[in-house]
Design a protein around this nucleic acid. Structure first.
Length: 711
DNA sequence: TCCGGAGGTCCCAAA
DNA sequence: GACCTCCGGA
């Protein structure tokens, strides 16, 4: 960032000569904005973006050299999976023994290593069948003008490699290349950088091996180690001073990451103050956790802080629900990132499906999606007939339908309905052709009758879908393509008519859709740890820091380096905090609809105890209920006046607690028979320490534990 | 062909 | 708990 400003100001470089690449849209957007402010100039045509975004730009400009149709579209992971499923069915491969998901990651894995189906060395029957699917998938995508995420990178690498004049042009143009989050580059991205940089370009990469958290999508830490060798003249700088966080936070992060064996090795330091200890809160369950967090933030705001200062980080998107509910209930504004992206929502994809089919009739996934949405009487049987014909004749679904109609291969109702569908799309195409982008989208939406269709859906859901469709319209109104006329490339991209539509659709697929909330509202941010990389906040909450969830059991099982990557993820989370860090974990949590109990994460144990301060609830001393025999406890630390004690529901409380006392024998559905040793808290939220026979001591929450008194 | 209920599966992270 | 898929009835 500073480097770019310096290059332009001091070295007199034109922004056109600089290529800056990052990993997330958010980071790219931010960089562009900050540069525009700092340099006080418009940088629309500067190449700042994600690897995927820049690759797309390259392919859109040089579609002919890349052997793509002009209006090629992007296949997102859902569409890709659907495509693989359909193709496997056609090949007669059963998806029970070979899950489509596995095939998907097989294909993406190879692409990320730069291998086409033809390059894969398949050993044995099983791998050969995978390779066959990969090959068929490649052919299908090519024929339909579809490009998946990995393909964007692979294809743009190939087009540069195989078109020397093009390569030379870009190598000369981009005399300076800057890469952020370099530790997350995969083989393909690394090769891409190497190719573009050529022999004498300048390249600067910023990265931190301790923050490598994308191993699962092919990122190679080795790229850092190879960097100085592969890029002659490059040097490695270690940045250890951190100007952001308190020394407590840095110390905790350092101690945590020391548990990893594979590191380049470094220790962060700061001149900042010691700051607050890290607060750890043991919640009863996820609702309690969420409410605790909201309460603390409310307190922070009451003391004059802003909500923008606060972020809640979690390991998996599923955790956002209970948090969201708590924020909603308290009426506290929040903004949530990631998860189900706007453009991945069903109703939006339906609408985009029509638009895709308008620009490209060969797009089978789009065809499949919209042919009977809204329902127009074209059922599974008819569709299967079309698929079979398409397969036999080697055609796309659209062409197959048209041919079947003219050859009178469809009869009765199918004939009428399919004909009507074909005519509908043709009509949309004709009528939108002379229109501007937003009018095209509006008209298509109207002709599709999607709004009507979704509003007939019952319940809240239909309403929400209609809202989203309306939001799509306003999104188009506010839309500005990142891809614009590029005065330096000989081939200027002409953003008119269909091309504008094609660009809108691809950029929608690449967009993370993180602009859902009003931008200027003071709101708490909610996001996954992965999304948070590169950001910083005064007040940070790490939620759900439990064994099994974080580190995630899947991550530990799936790969040998899994645990270390999880630890790096935790390191990333901790270092997001500038001043105050809260770590919360819940004793019980609903996962897949069933109550699950878990221990605090090992990552908490790995932090030096002297940096932590446990947050406990008060109240048990003041109002002992049926637990009067309780031995005196040391006074619990009180969190800065946060209003944790919500009123309890009286009725349920007395019913549940009435028959229980210390020393009481109880029976639990899962743990069997045990004796109550200790109790703490009030009402339903009373925490019971129970020693179960053969199981050991467990802390359970009265309101949630299915306990039956035995005597 | 469409709809609803039953039953199984699943999300660990992102472009 | 939400979603998909399969199945039987209208």
């Amino acid at each position: 960032m500073q480097r770019i400003v310096w290059l332009v100001r001091q070295e007199g470089l034109s922004p056109h000569e600089i290529l800056a690449v990052t990993f997330t849209n958010k980071a790219a957007k931010e960089m562009r904005l900050r540069l525009e402010t700092e340099l006080n100039m418009g940088l629309r045509s500067m190449w700042v973006g994600t690897f995927h975004g820049l690759s797309h730009r390259l392919l859109r400009t040089h579609w002919q050299e890349a052997k793509l149709p002009q209006h090629f579209q992007i296949l997102d992971s859902d569409d890709q999976l659907g495509m693989i499923k359909r193709l496997m069915k056609q090949l007669g491969i059963d998806t029970e023994s070979t899950p489509a998901k596995q095939v998907q990651s097989y294909i993406n894995g190879h692409k990320e290593e730069g291998r086409r189906a033809a390059h894969v060395l398949a050993r044995g029957q099983f791998e050969r069948s995978l390779q066959e699917i990969y090959q068929t998938y490649e052919d299908l995508c090519q024929r339909q003008g579809l490009v998946d995420f990995a393909e964007l990178l692979l294809r743009s690498l190939e087009v540069l490699r195989d078109t020397p004049p093009l390569l030379k042009h870009y190598q000369q143009r981009f005399s300076n290349i800057l890469v952020d989050e370099f530790q997350d580059t995969n083989t393909l991205q690394y090769a891409w950088l190497k190719l573009l940089r050529g022999t004498d370009g300048c390249i600067m990469a910023v990265g931190d091996d301790d923050q490598s958290i994308y191993g699962w999508r092919g990122a190679k830490i080795e790229n850092i180690h190879n960097f100085t060798e592969d890029f002659a003249g490059a040097q490695l700088l270690k940045l250890e001073q951190n100007y952001r966080s308190t020394s407590t936070i840095l110390k905790a992060a350092n101690e945590l990451i020391k548990n990893n064996s594979e590191r380049l090795g470094k220790a962060l330091w700061t001149e900042d103050q010691v700051g607050d200890p890290i607060r750890v809160y043991a919640a009863f369950n996820e609702q309690d956790e969420a409410r605790f967090i909201v309460d603390i933030i409310a307190q922070h705001v009451k003391e004059g802080g802003s909500r923008n200062d606060c972020v809640v980080l979690y390991r998996s998107n599923a955790q956002s629900r209970s948090l969201e509910e708590a924020f909603l209930r308290q009426g506290m504004p929040y903004r949530i990132y990631g998860g189900h992206r706007f453009y991945e929502r069903m109703e939006i994809k339906n609408a985009l499906g029509y638009l895709k089919l308008i620009t490209n009739r060969q797009d089978d996934p789009a065809f499949e999606r919209v042919i009977n949405t809204p329902t127009r009487g074209i059922g599974a049987t008819t569709l299967e007939k079309i698929r079979a014909y398409a397969r036999d004749e080697g055609l796309g679904l659209w062409d197959a339908s048209v041919e079947m109609l003219s050859r009178k291969l469809l009869t009765g109702r199918a004939l009428v309905t399919v004909k009507a569908f074909i005519e509908l799309i043709e009509r949309m195409d004709e009528e939108t052709l002379p229109l501007a982008l937003k009018e095209s989208v509006e008209l298509t939406l109207e002709l599709s009758e999607l709004i009507d269709f979704h509003s007939r859906e019952k319940g809240e859901r239909g309403l929400a879908r209609v809202e989203n469709l309306k939001e799509l319209i306003s999104a188009v109104h506010n839309y500005e393509p990142t891809l614009t006329l590029d005065d330096i490339d000989e081939k200027a991209v002409n953003l008119e008519g269909r091309q504008a539509l094609a660009v809108f659709l691809t950029e929608a697929s690449l967009d993370s859709g993180d602009k859902q909330a009003e931008e200027d509202e003071d709101a708490v941010q909610l996001m996954t740890l992965h999304t948070a990389k590169g950001l910083e906040f005064p007040l940070v909450f790490l939620a759900g820091v439990e064994e099994g969830l974080f580190p995630h059991s899947m991550a530990i099982q799936s790969s040998p380096g899994g645990l270390e990557e999880e630890r790096r993820l935790c390191y990333v989370g901790i270092t997001r905090a500038m001043k105050t860090l809260y770590i919360t974990h819940a004793e019980a949590r609903r996962i897949f609809g069933k109550e699950t109990y878990s221990q605090p994460s090992r990552f908490i144990t790995e932090l030096p105890a002297e940096l932590l301060s446990e947050v406990r609830l008060t109240g048990s001393v003041d109002r002992p209920m049926h637990f009067a025999k309780d031995r005196p406890r040391p006074a619990a630390a009180r969190v800065g006046g946060a209003g944790i004690g919500n009123p309890l529901s009286g009725a349920k409380e007395s019913a549940a607690a009435a028959n229980l006392r210390i020393g009481q024998r109880v029976e639990h559905k899962k743990f069997g028979v045990g004796v109550i040793l200790h109790a703490e808290g009030e009402g339903d939220r009373t925490r019971l320490l129970i020693n179960f026979e053969g199981v050991g001591e467990k802390t359970l929450v009265l309101g949630f534990a299915p306990l039956t008194p035995l005597d």
